[in-house]
Amino acid sequence: MSAEQAKRDTSVITRHGEVGIVDLVMVSDTSEGNKLVKVRVRDLRIPELGDKFASRHGQKGVVGLLIPQVDMPFTTEGIVPDIILNPHAFPSRMTLGQLMEAIAGKYAALSGELMDASPFYKIPMDEIQAKLMDFGHLPDSTEVVYDGRTGEKVRNRIFFGVVYYQKLHHMVADKIHARARGPVQILTRQPTEGRAREGGLRFGEMERDCLIGYGAAMLIKDRLLDNADKAVIYICEQCGYVGWFDRNKGRYVCPLHGDKSTLYPVTISYAFKLLVQELLSMAISPRLILGEKVS
C-alpha cells in the first residue's frame, strides 16, 4: 500500500459554541509510526455569575453576585474580602475545618509562619487563637466591618480569615443553552438532545401537567406538536389505514382500497405515526377513525 493510500483523517473539530485561541501545536508520531498532530486551545475565563468555586472542605457554591471593590465591606485596616460566604453553609455540613483554616491562615498571613493544614496538625486551635491576639486581632477572628456602600459600621462583627479557594470546572459559559429552530433527529423528527448538538429544551411530562392544570390547551399543542414533530398524514375514510403517495397517479392511495376510497389529511405527531407503523410491524392493526372536521 502506498503512503498516499495509508492516510486516514481522524481530525477532531471544535464543537458547537466552543471558542478559544490556539495555544500549542505539537507534531509527533504514534507507536505505529503514524504522524500525530495535537492542538491545544486556551480560553480566558474571567469569573462570572454562575461560576462554581469551592474551598478544600467540600464547601462548594456558585457566584451569586459580583460587586465592585468600592462597594464591598472593609475592615478598620481597609482590608476587603474576595469572597463573602453565607454562614448558613456551616451548621448542617459541619465543615469546621474551614473555620480552622481561616483562623490558621490569618495567623500565617500575619506572622509569616508556615501552618500545617492537614488533619494531623500539632498546634492546638486555642494556641493559634491566643497568638492572633499578639497581632492585635480578636481570638475568634472576627473584625469590625464597614459597609462599602454607605460607609456605616455593620452592627455585628464579621468572621474574617484566609482560606484557599479553587475555581471548579463547572462554568456557566459551558452550560448556557437556548434554541429557537435547529436540527432534528432523523428517526423521530423531534429536536435533537443536548447542548453539544444544539438540542431543544425538553418540555417533559410534569411541565405538561402544569399546563393542563392551567387549562392552557393551545400552549400544550404549540409546545408538543407545532414546535416539535408536526406531520400531516392521509387516512382512508373506510378502513382507517395510513395512505401512501402514488407518484404515477400523483395522489394518495389507500393500502387496502387503492384509489377507490377518499383519503383525508390528518395532523398528528410524527412520533405517533411511527408508533402506528411499529404496531403494524408486530401484526397489530391500529385504525384511525375519522370524525367531523373541527374548524
Rank of each mutant, 00 (worst) to 15 (best):
M1A: 04
S11D: 11
H16N: 06
V19D: 01
V19M: 03
D23S: 12
V27N: 09
S28Q: 04
D29R: 07
K35S: 11
K35H: 05
L36P: 01
K38F: 02
V39P: 04
R45G: 04
R45T: 04
R45S: 07
E48K: 07
L49E: 01
A54E: 13
V63N: 15
Q69W: 04
V70D: 15
V70S: 14
V70H: 08
T76P: 02
T76F: 03
E77R: 13
G78K: 10
L85E: 14
L85V: 14
N86A: 12
F90C: 02
S92Q: 11
R93F: 09
T95V: 13
E101S: 05
E101M: 03
A109P: 01
L110K: 15
M115I: 15
D116L: 11
S118W: 08
S118V: 11
P119F: 09
P124C: 13
D126N: 15
E127C: 13
Q129W: 11
D134G: 09
D134F: 03
G136D: 02
S141A: 14
S141G: 13
V144Y: 02
V145Y: 06
V145D: 02
Y146M: 06
G148K: 02
G148V: 03
T150D: 03
T150P: 03
K153D: 02
N156D: 15
I158R: 13
I158P: 07
F159T: 06
F160Y: 14
F160E: 02
V163N: 01
Y165D: 04
Y165R: 07
H170L: 06
K175N: 02
H177K: 00
R179Y: 00
R179L: 01
R181I: 01
P183T: 00
I186N: 15
G194Y: 00
R195P: 00
A196L: 12
R197F: 05
I212H: 13
G213L: 12
R223E: 00
R223V: 00
L224N: 12
A231L: 04
E237V: 12
V242K: 01
N248F: 05
N248D: 08
K249R: 10
G250L: 04
Y252W: 07
V253Q: 10
H257W: 09
Y264D: 03
Y264R: 12
P265N: 10
I268Y: 04
S269Y: 06
Y270E: 01
F272S: 13
F272M: 07
L274Q: 06
L275C: 03
V276G: 01
S281I: 13
S281K: 09
I284A: 09
P286L: 12
I289P: 08
E292S: 09
S295D: 13
S295F: 06
